[in-house]
């Protein structure tokens, strides 16, 4: 694929990737990925853009970002970024962010907070995953703890108005416990309330999606997964979908990135004046983990 076809990532009508702060508006964004096309490269690009306003996927900034030998300074970051993960630990994120985005993130990094919700999930927070009586209270306690940590982190480190929260694989809770989608969505709203922009990263498994299902039990896994995803799309302002090529596989294309308007995208347009520009990119992730976008 020739270099001339290479594209820059732009999501909104003004060309930005993450919108500027608007005190009257808190956005909810959904990132879905499928098996074989992981979201890491895209989430990293979002984190980099949130912190330093650059994007290593874009041709102009990728040269400068990688040519710097020293890691870039997070002291004067443009926002405070919090990653809440139900899947990976900090080592995973810091290794990838260092390699591809030249960002050094450690537990003591300014303007960056990582919350590992997986390591102690079943030993500390959710002790009875199958008890319908206690699960809601336990999950509520877990999210109260997460919210508390976010608020403390934002207060302790140089104050920023813009708080960007990325939650990875939240749907793990409905798959592994008897928690219902509505109870989890309630916690999503709570996180959206404290963040300027909330990104929920979730897996979309086509075999676990059936929109027209009539489930006989509220614990049916297909029903729960579909209920969560569909309701998330209805309430999202933006949907980013990373998925494999519909036509099979290719050596020079890893997958497709789709930028789709969410159910409430009109709310965003009316309040902030920003419009989601729908489009589709082809992308290629190299062996070293760097991604390139191409026009489709």
């Amino acid at each position: 694929m020739s270099a001339s076809q290479r594209q820059d990532l732009a999501i909104y009508s003004n060309g930005c990737i993450i919108p500027p702060l608007n005190p009257a508006f808190k956005s909810l964004n959904l990132v879905t990925y499928q098996q074989g096309t992981h979201h890491t490269w895209l989430t990293q690009a979002l984190l980099e853009n949130a912190l330093l306003d650059t994007c290593s996927l874009n041709s102009d900034s990728s040269q400068t970002a990688r040519s710097l030998n020293n890691s870039r300074n997070l002291e004067d970051a443009k926002a405070h970024v919090v990653v809440v993960s139900f899947m990976n630990d900090l080592a995973h994120w810091s290794k990838n962010l260092k390699k591809c985005n030249n960002l050094d993130v450690t537990p003591s990094s300014p303007n960056f907070t990582f919350l590992d919700c997986f390591t102690n999930l079943f030993s500390k927070f959710i002790t009875a995953p199958t008890s319908a009586q206690s699960i809601e209270a336990q999950v509520q306690e877990l999210f109260a703890d997460v919210t508390q940590k976010i608020v403390t982190a934002v207060r302790a480190k140089p104050a920023h108005q813009r708080l960007i929260v990325v939650v990875e694989n939240l749907e793990f809770l409905i798959a592994a416990t008897c928690l219902r989608a509505n109870q989890l969505l309630c916690q999503v709203s709570a996180l959206q309330n404290i963040a300027s922009h909330l990104y929920v990263v979730t897996q979309l498994a086509p075999e676990a999606i059936d929109v027209s299902t009539v489930a006989s039990s509220a614990h049916n896994p297909v029903y729960k997964a579909t209920d969560f995803l569909v309701k998330m799309i209805y309430r999202a302002h933006l949907v980013l979908q990373v998925q494999p090529l519909a036509t099979g596989r290719a050596d020079d294309v890893t997958g497709v990135l789709r930028i789709v308007r969410g159910g409430l995208s009109e709310e965003m347009r009316l309040v902030t004046g920003l419009n989601v520009v729908e489009k589709e990119y082809l992308y290629l992730v190299n062996k070293d983990g760097n991604a390139k976008l191409f026009f489709r």
């Binding site: 929109v211 995803l229 569909v230 930028i259 159910g263 009109e266």
Partner: peptide, 16 residues
Amino acid sequence: AVENLRLPIKAGLNGA
């Protein structure tokens, strides 16, 4: 497309 949650783009969906 809706059943597969793969909504068509630039088709005027969710518009005014």
